[in-house]
Amino acid sequence: MILRFTLPYRTEPGQRLVVCGSLPALGQWAPEAALALHYDAASGHWNRELEVSADQLAGATYKYLLLDERDGGRHWEWGPNRELPTAVAPFGRLVLADWWRAPAQPENELFTAAFTEALFRRPAPAAPAAPGCGRPGRALPAGSPAR
């Protein structure tokens, strides 16, 4: 299975993006061992492709991390850990077209329980959710990875 990470991000000189996550190729949540992305100036995207075995995908999680060489800063993107999609057969190549989730954005607060559990609460689904969607969305928006 070929896995491709891609996201648009206009970095400043000295900054670079890496992807860090539970898979060994993503550093098993150790930022030092995260997978470096490559910048494509033409598209303004940071990308990286790698090969993983399909059975590793289930339950795997990741997040993007912005490294700033100017001050040694490590800035995790905002939000819950991203989950790798499951049930991707029969495809041999998986492209994860993501967007950087900027921290400290006022809109981020619309993901808190006030909104998801009360104000915009969805009525309980009449039919059971589709397979593979069993986990409720009560994830923790964390500044660092929830492990």
Binding site: R82, P85, V88, F91, G92, R93, L94, V95, L96, A97, D98, W99, P106, E107, L110, F115
Partner: peptide, 22 residues
């Protein structure tokens, strides 16, 4: 995208609401 073997999974950027912030 020309490769029929490819599954593209988007995690798109936020919905652009027509009204002011909630």
């Amino acid at each position: 995208e020309t490769n029929p073997q490819t599954l593209r999974v988007l995690a798109d950027n936020q919905y652009r609401h027509p009204t002011a912030p909630w």
